[in-house]
Computed example of a mutant assay.
Amino acid sequence: MTTDTDWLVDAIARATEDVRARLHEHRDKVDAENPSGDTQVAADDWVDGVFHDALAGIDAVGAYASEERPDVADVGSGYGVTIDPLDGSSNLLSNSVTGTVIGVYDASLPAFGRDLVAAGLVLYGSYTTATVATGDDVTRHVIAEGSVVDSDPVSMPDGEGIYGYAGGRYEMTDGLQEALDEVGGAHKVRYSGAMVADVSQLLTHGGVLVYPALDSRPEGVLRLQYESNPVAYIVEHAGGASSDGSGSVLDAAPTGLHRRVPTILGSPELVERMADAEGGQ
């Protein structure tokens, strides 16, 4: 199968034009949960529909799986595409940043991260960007009015950078709490409530992000297929590292479509340090 994924950037550009124009119309909460058990806002399903329409009809796409859908949709013969349609959707109520995460797998879903051939991280910030990794190349595209208007290569910076974590400190291991205290002395804290925004900060400034196993979520916070694999693919191809506590996130077994895993992202040294600490008590 060809690994030309220009169609992915084109589809993202088309879909984001509609999302930016109408997202405000779908900001209310609804009395429902997605298959992963998260409370939905109306925009979750709506953005899912926008991207489904943009991606499902492409010849290169054979399957479509969404965080908002219980099962994989068979849409043809080609790559398996996964999507978190609106990461950070709870931020809509305060008009804070949101985004979209896309994975393109050359395998049946659910799949290993090593089966990814491309991944995209879309950020609806002051302007729209799509950071796309394909092979060894990571590029941040600026999108306006449905078209790419500028593009720049992305690589993980060295230096102190930022750090952030999900969940209450009291739910983490003692070792991880101590490691976060040590790192916090030399890094600026960043946590927005939207993983896409924090990873964009990471790719811009360097550092480390920790989405650990918690007492209330021992399996972790992020979903392997829709979030952890795609962002780990982008971060690793930008020169960073990832870990689920025992190795690269990309090697985590896809035991279920909506499986969650602990996820650490950042510079290789800091990722190793946090992974070791998370395993401590």
Rank of each mutant, 00 (worst) to 15 (best):
R14V: 13
R14A: 07
R14G: 08
A15H: 04
A15R: 01
A15Y: 01
A15K: 04
T16D: 08
T16Y: 03
T16P: 01
V19L: 05
V19Y: 00
V19T: 03
V19N: 05
R20W: 03
A21H: 07
R22L: 10
L23S: 05
L23F: 01
H24R: 11
H24Y: 04
H24G: 14
E25A: 13
E25K: 11
E25Y: 09
H26S: 06
H26Q: 12
H26T: 12
H26R: 13
R27Q: 15
R27I: 11
R27L: 13
R27C: 12
D28S: 07
V30A: 05
D31T: 15
D31A: 15
D31G: 15
A32S: 13
E33P: 05
E33A: 09
N34M: 01
N34A: 07
N34E: 00
N34Q: 07
P35M: 02
P35V: 07
S36E: 14
G37P: 13
G37A: 10
G37L: 03
G37C: 10
D38M: 11
D38Q: 13
D38T: 12
T39Q: 14
T39L: 12
T39V: 13
Q40T: 11
Q40R: 10
Q40G: 02
Q40E: 08
V41F: 03
V41Y: 04
V41L: 11
A42C: 06
A42L: 09
A42H: 05
A42N: 11
A42E: 15
A42I: 05
A43M: 05
A43V: 13
A43Y: 05
A43C: 03
A43H: 08
D44E: 05
D44N: 02
D44V: 05
D45F: 01
W46N: 04
W46D: 02
W46H: 00
W46L: 00
W46E: 01
W46G: 03
W46P: 04
V47M: 04
V47C: 00
V47F: 00
V47P: 04
D48M: 00
D48L: 00
D48Q: 01
G49P: 05
G49A: 02
G49S: 06
V50E: 03
V50M: 05
F51Y: 01
F51V: 06
F51W: 04
H52F: 06
H52V: 09
H52L: 12
H52W: 02
H52E: 12
D53E: 15
D53R: 14
D53A: 12
A54Q: 00
A54V: 06
A54C: 06
A54S: 04
A54G: 07
L55T: 08
L55N: 00
L55H: 03
A56C: 08
G57Y: 04
G57D: 08
G57Q: 01
G57F: 01
G57K: 02
I58G: 10
I58N: 12
I58Y: 03
I58F: 08
I58D: 10
D59A: 08
D59L: 05
A60V: 12
A60L: 07
A60M: 11
